[in-house]
Design a binder for these strands. Structure first.
Lengths: 266, 266
DNA sequence: CAGTGGTCTAGACCACTCA
DNA sequence: GAGTGGTCTAGACCACTGT
């Protein structure tokens, strides 16, 4: 058979939306109104096709639209469900020594525990590498030699991956210290060690952006469709204005957000 | 005809990817390698279908995948093109009086001009309203009466909409001032006026998150598929620790990002 | 006008989930 | 095994862009 029949409307406001959009719009409306609440199961594709007198593919297209908006979560063999919004982990630039000594916990751990979940941080790799031009520039090191240590950390909440952080440290600073070798950095975490080495963090610079994940990120962080990632490039600066560490974070935007409190000078 | 023929592979590593994914992966590879550079036109759907011996819908599905990743830009009647990454506007928390008086420009205008583009900011609406529970809580005002002024601002670069900001100000502060009435706030912009009213900004709190846009945001900001938005809830705090203004920003993540420099106290 | 994407149809088989 | 989503086919007409 041919194309869809136009909706019979010779009046002022013909519904110009194609059926797939119309179905998506109606479902979205019902989700936002709460008629379909979080976790609720949508009608199956075949049911919806029947209900709207369309082909299954058309109903399916409608669901795809909502999926790409991050509104529904489709599970193979089970159905499509209204996505539950987990409360966001509020992370941010929290590097003060007071905080380190007070809680004995990293800001990440503290935040996850606050939400009644179980934190885990895995250091999966420590290598000495040749830095990218960008990293070399940020740290003021030689881009042509193995001038930095690269540490990769994965952050979990209840065993669910939330973010990855890749830290770059000039070899001249890390050489001989635990930073260059050990996964476990001891009390006060990494900033405690930098302080031991004569580089207390006195200023933090953060560049934040958001985009859709690459396929690698989608796999690694188990990111569902319709969920973007936030990317933070963090630079730590010491008392002499010297950048001594750069970390690139990639986090699932549906699980976390960032919080900053910034003093405003004259 | 029936289902796709499996790729003839009785060896160890059969390619388990469905054709649409495989085509998408190959195109993505070519884009990342630079073989298809920014702005380049992809083969048409019909050409790709022919080249891969699939139905047109299958080739189309592959393009849709890349589109949802934000990698390609599809134009009706013209073709699909590798998306150009415009340089990001780096915005952030820049509220110092010095900056206000130095340039005479708002941080937004300064940043857009720096990129050789033409800024425009339109104040499209000023109303006295009853605040949402969230806003009322943040400002410490009555959620049951018209206790706040709401100002809506649209930010453009070369007439392209980049972000929207909705500002809420307690009526008790805005009453009688230009804040409650006028679009144009004069030199030093809005923070100059708050200072005139006895509320210099001494601290800024920002909560940042990212998500896919709602259909309204997609329309209003002309956001292409596969592009998320960043949302910032900004709170200004005065010398007495009193929050005197909340602004909710929504910005296209492909056009802008955020930059923060944060001092770290002991 | 030809060419491109946008959308739909009707039917098919595969892969996963759950009782 | 019944039901659900995942994917594909072959063909169709619509709507937009260009020459």
């Amino acid at each position: 058979m041919g194309y869809q029949q136009r909706r019979g409307d010779t009046l002022q406001d013909p519904d110009r939306r194609p059926p797939s959009r119309r179905i998506a719009d109606e479902l979205r409306e019902r989700i936002i109104r709460g008629e379909l609440s979080a976790g609720a199961k949508l009608p199956s594709e075949r049911e919806m096709a029947q209900a709207y007198s369309t082909a299954r593919n058309t109903a399916r297209e409608a669901i795809t639209i909502l999926r790409n908006e991050g509104l529904v979560d489709v599970q193979h063999g089970r159905g499509a469900f209204v996505r539950t919004r987990p409360s966001l982990l509020r992370l941010g630039s929290r590097y003060s020594r007071a905080l380190r000594e007070q809680t004995g916990l990293s800001p990440y751990r503290a935040e996850v525990i606050k939400q009644g979940r179980t934190p885990r941080v895995d250091c999966t790799s420590i290598k000495r590498i040749r830095p990218s031009a960008d990293i070399a520039h940020r740290l003021g090191v030689d881009p042509a030699s193995k001038s930095v240590i690269r540490r990769e950390n994965w952050y979990f909440a209840d065993n669910q991956p939330v973010q990855v952080g890749v830290t770059f440290i000039p070899w001249t600073i890390a050489r001989g210290s635990v930073l260059a070798k050990q996964a476990n950095l001891g009390p006060g975490s990494i900033y405690g060690r930098f302080e031991d080495l004569g580089h207390p963090i006195v200023r933090s610079h953060e560049e934040i952006s958001a985009r859709m994940p690459t396929p690698e990120e989608t796999r690694g962080l188990a990111i569902p469709p319709g969920v973007p990632i936030m990317q933070v490039v963090h630079t730590s600066i010491d008392q002499h204005g010297v950048p001594f560490e750069v970390t690139q974070f990639v986090m699932r935007a549906d699980l976390g957000g960032l919080d900053y409190t910034i003093p405003v000078d004259d």
